[in-house]
Each structure stands twice: as structure tokens, then as C-alpha cells.
């Protein structure tokens, strides 16, 4: 059972690397924001998996809940911040 969780979390890290490509190479700022949001929602699952591996789920669940809240607030604040910028469209054109 433990090795299944180990391989699942390694696979989850691999999937997160795919999302990291969009976060690094996205044409606009909002594409990068989508990549960061996807990584954050996968990290929530990864934290609970780590807790299951170390047999301390009761502790890691709280960290996962706090991480989900922090991810939501970060995405909300960043999108509110970048909607004032008018230069997003130019950045997509320059591609």
C-alpha cells in the first residue's frame, strides 16, 4: 500500500512538471496564472498523499486545507492586480 502511494505521488510530481511548462512559457501573464493555479490544486492532493505515506494524515490534512485557502487567495489577488494592466494584449501579439 505504501509503495502505491509513493508511485502515485511521483506521478503527480511528473504531472505538475507539465503544468510548470505552461507557467514558465505562457505567452501572457494570465496563462502563467492558470499554470500556477493548476500546480496548487495538485499540491493539495500531494500533501494528503505525503501524510498517508508517513502515517500522519491528521497533521497533513490541516496543512492541505491551509494550502487550498492560500492558493485561492493568491489566484484571486493576482488576477485582481493584473486586470488593471492594459499591456496584456500587446504581450500576446508580440509572440
Amino acid at each position: 500500500m505504501n509503495s502505491i502511494f509513493l508511485y502515485a505521488s511521483i506521478y503527480l510530481c511528473l504531472v505538475m512538471a507539465f503544468s510548470l511548462y505552461r507557467a514558465v512559457a505562457g505567452p501572457t501573464v494570465l496563462d502563467r496564472l492558470i499554470g500556477v493555479n493548476a500546480i496548487g490544486s495538485k499540491t493539495t492532493a500531494l500533501l494528503v498523499l505525503i501524510g498517508l505515506m508517513y502515517k500522519r494524515v491528521d497533521m497533513f490534512v490541516d496543512i492541505a486545507l491551509a494550502y487550498a485557502m492560500l492558493n485561492f487567495i493568491a489566484v484571486l489577488a493576482a488576477s485582481r492586480y493584473f486586470q488593471k494592466k492594459k499591456g496584456l494584449y500587446d504581450e500576446a501579439d508580440r509572440r
Binding site: 501572457t28 494570465l30 496564472l33 488576477s79 485582481r80 493584473f82 494592466k85 496584456l88
Partner: peptide
């Protein structure tokens, strides 16, 4: 809510 915030930012920036 997060999805809506991102798409709203995109619409207001004129993408």
C-alpha cells in the same frame, strides 16, 4: 470563483 476571476481579468484587459 477563481476561474471567474481569471476570465474576468482577461476580458477587462481586452484579450
Amino acid at each position: 470563483t477563481a476561474t471567474h476571476a481569471i476570465i474576468d481579468a482577461g476580458v477587462r484587459a481586452g484579450l
